[in-house]
Simulated scan of single mutants.
Amino acid sequence: MDKIDLRTLQILEEIGQDGQLSQRRLADRLGISLGLVNSFVKRLANKGYFKIINTPPNRFVYVLTPKGFAEKARLSYKYITYSYRFYRNARHQLRELFIELTGAGVGSVVFAGISDFAEIAYLSLQEVPVTLAGVVDDADGRHLFFGHVVRPVHEIAGFSYDRVLITDIEHHERLQTLLEQMGIARSRIRVP
């Protein structure tokens, strides 16, 4: 599923839930720029996915049309199909990796990066005798990941581990570079 389809689905879902959203609030909810939201809203309205009704004082109400409901359903199905394939492929890939690591005598790993892939990796890790020594990420703030406190990447030196598994595939190059700059040998870093 490409980013345009995903954004379209997100906007149609938000409008379906609250047709009185301002574009600024929609931009905040989706974490994208106001200009991008404006561009999408115009394009989707021109395609007939919703009607824009002007109400005083200078407010707009968005009403999904039957064509908009149909597009939302089509994109939802596409997203679910994409997500299932992603999950199935990730589970297979991780199962093979953990079997390989177990065969190589690896007893513990650190996850580098929090993502959907990291969650799948955690579930896959439960099937092998490899323990999760810790979790690091380059995002700000500490939070929990399956009971593990997520620490900044530079704190990886405080963990005892055999391998680092990069579990944010979208930012794997940046994380790998950061880890190598910290002196972690490339042979100890795995990118699935």
Rank of each mutant, 00 (worst) to 15 (best):
I80L: 10
I80E: 07
I80C: 01
I80A: 02
I80M: 00
T81F: 01
T81A: 02
Y82W: 05
Y82M: 06
Y82N: 00
S83N: 13
S83G: 06
S83D: 10
Y84H: 09
R85E: 08
F86E: 06
F86L: 09
F86Y: 14
Y87H: 08
R88G: 03
N89K: 09
N89W: 10
N89H: 08
A90P: 10
H92P: 12
Q93Y: 10
Q93V: 13
L94M: 14
L94N: 11
L94C: 13
R95A: 04
R95K: 13
R95P: 08
R95T: 05
E96S: 09
E96T: 13
E96P: 06
L97R: 15
L97Q: 02
L97C: 14
F98M: 07
F98D: 09
F98C: 09
F98S: 05
I99L: 15
I99W: 12
I99G: 15
I99F: 12
E100R: 14
E100W: 14
L101K: 07
T102C: 09
T102Q: 11
T102K: 11
T102L: 15
G103E: 06
G103L: 12
A104S: 08
A104R: 14
A104K: 06
A104H: 14
G105Q: 02
G105L: 00
G105Y: 05
G105V: 02
G105P: 01
V106A: 06
G107P: 11
G107N: 10
G107A: 07
S108C: 04
S108N: 05
V109T: 07
V109I: 15
V109E: 06
V109C: 09
V110A: 06
V110P: 05
V110H: 07
V110W: 11
V110T: 12
V110R: 11
F111A: 14
F111L: 10
F111E: 10
F111D: 11
F111C: 14
F111V: 15
A112T: 00
G113F: 00
G113W: 04
I114E: 03
I114M: 00
I114V: 04
I114H: 01
